[in-house]
Amino acid sequence: MLDFVQKFITKVIGDLFMKKKHVKLGLYGPPNGGKTTLANRVCQDWLGQDMGTVSPIPHETREIQVKEQINIKSGKKELSFNLVDTPGIATKIDYEDFVKKGMKTKDAKKRAKEATKGVIDAIKWLDDMDVVLVVLDATKDPYTQVNITIIGNLVARDIPVLIVANKVDLRKADVKKIEAAFPQYDVLGVSAKFGKNIDKLYEALFVLAG
């Protein structure tokens, strides 16, 4: 009973004074969906700096990256969060795929080793997230088991999810296909590279983290 009263008072006071919220916001998804491009867009918009490097070769992000204390504002609302950019989750990693992209065998093997560790870390960090954006490449088939497993695990942990259909600037992008694959979730089409619909994404974050 005391706990309930305490929570109620905190909420009322928080609402009255537009309480500044602080959450851990994770970016999850398969490799090359554009998680780091989106992270860079957010960091550029609110901190004036990039978060990580991007590459057309999969598994460029092989370690968890955290940018702390990002404050976004919309009217009187303010949201403070730690942004967590995670390595792309995959069920297979073959160093020969990197060799085919022009890497030397030694470097490719090192990249593959680091990438496997990155996937493990990304899954371990799932428990620490308050809100997650699942970033999917809108030009690719969304109905993969990796996507379903990621979303299923977030739901199992009661973590609010928004599916971000990235790369809508590309002609092959099909947001409707992603909506059809995950009809029970909100899907927002964006172009992290060119900033399309990023304002809508910020608005959605207030709702998700609210």
Partner: peptide
């Protein structure tokens, strides 16, 4: 399923 992916990576 998530654990299967983790173990696969290992």
């Amino acid at each position: 399923e998530a654990e299967l992916i983790k173990t696969t990576m290992e």
